[in-house]
Computed example of a mutant assay.
Amino acid sequence: MTTDAPWLIAGLGNPGPWFRLTRHNAGFLAVDRLAERYGARFRRRGIGAVVAEIEVDGRQVLLAKPLWWSINLSGRPVAALLRRYGVPVERLVVVQDDLDFAYGTGKLKRGGGPGGHNGVRSVGEVLGTRDFVRLRFGIGRPPKGQSVGDYVLKKFSDGELAAMPQVTDRCADALETLVRLGLNRAQDALNVSA
Score class of each variant (00 low, 15 high):
Thr2Phe: 01
Thr3Cys: 00
Asp4Ile: 01
Pro6His: 04
Trp7Asp: 00
Gly11Asn: 10
Asn14Gly: 05
Phe19Thr: 08
Leu21Glu: 12
Thr22Lys: 03
Asn25Trp: 03
Leu29Gly: 04
Asp32Tyr: 07
Arg33Thr: 05
Leu34Tyr: 07
Ala40Met: 12
Arg41Gly: 10
Arg41Val: 15
Phe42His: 09
Val50Trp: 05
Ala52Ser: 08
Ala52Trp: 09
Val56Arg: 05
Arg59Val: 03
Ala64Gln: 09
Trp68Met: 08
Ser74Gly: 11
Arg76Trp: 12
Ala79Tyr: 06
Leu81Trp: 07
Leu82Pro: 00
Arg84Thr: 15
Gly86Met: 01
Pro88Ile: 00
Val89Thr: 13
Glu90Ala: 01
Val93Thr: 04
Gln96Cys: 12
Leu99Asp: 06
Asp100Glu: 13
Asp100Ile: 04
Tyr103Lys: 06
Leu108Glu: 02
Pro114Leu: 02
Val120Ile: 11
Val123Gln: 07
Gly124Met: 14
Val126Met: 06
Leu127Gly: 07
Asp131His: 10
Leu135Trp: 04
Ile139Asn: 02
Gly140Asn: 10
Pro142His: 08
Tyr151Arg: 06
Lys154Phe: 03
Phe156Gln: 10
Ala162Phe: 08
Arg170Asn: 09
Ala172Leu: 09
Glu176Ile: 14
Leu178Asn: 01
Leu178Gly: 01
Asp188Ala: 15
Leu190Gly: 00
Asn191Tyr: 13
Asn191Gly: 14
Val192Pro: 00
